[in-house]
Amino acid sequence: MTPAAPRDTPPSDRPLPPYLTATANELAHERVSGADEDVHFTERTAAAVIERLTDPGDLVLDPFAGYGTALAVAIRLGRRAIGVEILPERVDLIRGRAPEATVIEGDARGLHQLVGGPVDLCLTSPPYMTANAHPHNPLTAYETVDGDYRTYLEHLARLARTVHDLLRPGGHLVVNVANIRHESHTTALAWDVARAVGGVLPFVGETVIVWDVLPHDFTGDYLLTFRRQ
């Protein structure tokens, strides 16, 4: 693993390592009480990103807050944290898990109306979608059946534009996303998201998350890093 950068190095000059490790036991152990599914990334993964790309006191944003892993780890590491979550029951879980964080109940597609900048780091994992056999819309928490893969990617690009405007110069967007095998078809979700978001924010590179056992249906898991110039 890449050695830690000196603390007097600005975050914009501290690249993420080419790989990080994670285990199925970590994921199972960190499942939040009351959650109906696993978190997307482990606390150790979140900590590696936050420690590398921010300094104490910096503001970390997660527009798809989920169960609050990024927010909870940010607070633990002495950063400020703000997140948006569409499901009210998850908002309550996050507030219990990270009471010092600001948690807003809302739709990430309206982020421009919900959050003000400047933000130092946006670390998030959007709800996943496959290009085949996926009528439920991830951006409505899978509660509607108007899912369309191209539209989904367009919405993520629009969200990236908002994040761009919220980020301070030199600030980073890090997206955790996987390629997925479903019903004999592999969706290159990570690469499609990289293209969509990379049209808005310059792509810096990818970090491979090396699992001892890949989560269900994953063919590869990545952190995609973008940086505002």
Rank of each mutant, 00 (worst) to 15 (best):
I104R: 02
G106C: 13
D107Q: 13
G110A: 10
G110R: 09
L111D: 03
H112Y: 10
H112N: 08
L114I: 03
V115E: 11
G117H: 14
G117I: 14
V119N: 07
L121A: 07
L121Q: 00
C122D: 12
T124L: 15
T124I: 06
P126S: 12
P127C: 09
P127G: 13
P127D: 08
A131I: 14
A131L: 10
A133T: 15
H134V: 09
P135Q: 07
P135V: 07
P135A: 10
H136L: 12
P138W: 04
L139M: 01
A141S: 15
A141I: 13
E143G: 11
E143P: 15
V145Q: 09
V145P: 06
V145I: 07
V145G: 13
D146L: 01
G147E: 07
D148Y: 10
D148S: 04
T151N: 14
Y152R: 08
Y152L: 10
E154T: 13
H155G: 01
H155N: 12
L156R: 01
A157L: 11
A157Y: 06
R158K: 03
L159C: 01
L159Q: 04
L159G: 04
A160S: 11
A160I: 04
R161N: 14
H164T: 03
D165R: 09
L166S: 04
L167C: 05
L167P: 05
R168T: 11
R168W: 05
P169K: 00
G171Q: 04
L173V: 06
V174G: 03
V175L: 10
V177N: 04
V177K: 02
A178K: 07
N179R: 08
R181Q: 07
H182N: 10
H182P: 01
A188V: 05
A188T: 01
